[in-house]
């Protein structure tokens, strides 16, 4: 068993755009749930809008990539508004069911054959990042994201982070978005605005009785978290194809797990939680099949790769019961309002 190889592959996940994308979505969920107390179970929908908005902006509307990015963000804002105007008056668990249903509606609409021309249906969309475009769809040849890469071609870094210029470009862009978003969120939650949304999390009637427009604050929180989720989706789209099979409810649940792992009511919790969660996923996804192959586990490699998801579920249960504040959260500030 190549244990070093496994560790190396695992470590590469620390800087993987996917990890950063999930960290962004987790940050959005921290705003929603950790700070404003909104039970958003539809984060996958926001991410899907970010990714598809970008891809469709390029492929269907022929926008340059940097403008297309705003299509996804704009779509997530519109989604948050449509979702929020009626639902933010609902009780917490109702909001959870509405958001999960809304995210499923988005996924089904992206999957249906009716809009194949735009969404690519089950095949998803490809070739919008500049290179690898098809002949009939000459994606912005010189204007694509990949072509905007200022890094000369070649391999950079050191193992396990030895990668080509494209991977590094995405990493750097992802890192910039992530750092910017984290800083903004840190500023927000430590400001009087953050004080108000934390108050709303505790008891919205009390905050209302103090003359704050609770609905507007909740809406702002929903939009900000949704935009962060769409940025996560955008990052995924920058690094790979988009496909509706990614944006399933399980994705939302995984992001919840990562968030609760780090601590829901913290700014760095989602970040650290995502890194731990996805590297752990990668590690278990490699180590169990390797153990199975070496004959140390009595089942097939495919089965071995599934074990990690079972473990995720168990971790989620144990976290919520025994350490709801997460690794970094303050026990006193655990966020589950009864």
């Amino acid at each position: 068993m190549d244990f070093l190889g496994i560790l190396s592959s695992t470590a590469s996940f620390i800087l993987d755009p996917t990890t950063m994308a999930y960290a962004l979505a987790g940050l959005g969920l921290a705003i929603h749930f950790g700070f404003a107390g909104l039970l958003n179970m539809g984060m996958a929908g926001f991410m899907a809008l970010g990714a598809y908005g970008y891809a469709i902006g390029i492929l269907t509307f022929g926008l340059p990539w940097y403008l297309a990015a705003f299509v996804g963000i704009g779509a997530s804002i519109v989604f948050a508004l449509i979702l929020g105007i009626p639902t933010l008056r609902l009780r917490g668990d109702y909001l959870a069911i509405v958001t999960i249903a809304a995210a499923e509606i988005i996924r089904l609409l992206l999957l249906t054959a009716v809009f194949t021309d735009v969404t690519g249906s089950a095949d998803g969309l490809t070739g919008f990042n500049g290179t690898g475009g098809t002949v009939t769809n000459p994606t912005p040849g010189a204007g694509g994201f990949n072509d905007a890469n200022p890094i000369p071609s070649g391999e950079y870094g050191f193992e396990p982070f030895l990668d080509n210029e494209r991977t590094w470009f995405i990493r750097i862009v992802g890192m910039l978005i992530l750092v910017g978003a984290t800083f903004a969120v840190w500023r927000l939650v430590n400001s009087p605005w953050g004080r108000v949304i934390k108050g709303i999390r505790e008891d919205e009637d009390a905050v209302r009785s103090l003359g704050k427009n609770v609905f507007a604050y909740k809406m702002q929180a929903l939009v900000i978290g949704g935009v962060l989720g769409s940025l996560g989706g955008l990052l995924l789209a920058l690094s790979t194809n988009v496909n509706s099979s990614v944006y399933v409810t399980s994705l939302t649940f995984f992001i919840w797990t990562a968030l609760l792992l780090g601590g829901a009511a913290t700014v760095f919790g989602p970040l650290v939680g995502s890194v731990i969660f996805w590297t752990l996923q990668a590690f278990l996804g490699l180590v169990f099949p390797a153990l199975a192959k070496a004959g140390l586990l009595p089942f097939s490699g495919i089965q071995a790769a599934q074990i990690r998801f079972i473990i995720v579920g168990v971790i989620l249960v144990l976290l919520v019961i025994f350490r709801p504040q997460g690794i970094f959260g303050n026990k006193k500030e655990l966020t589950f309002v009864k």
Binding site: R187, R195, G199, K212, Q220, I224
Partner: peptide, 18 residues
């Protein structure tokens, strides 16, 4: 502090600038 009605930093835009 939540009780105060005079805090401009409770506006989303202003909150980013301490």
């Amino acid at each position: 502090k939540l009780g105060s009605t005079e805090q401009p930093g409770e506006k989303l835009g202003a909150s980013l600038f301490p």
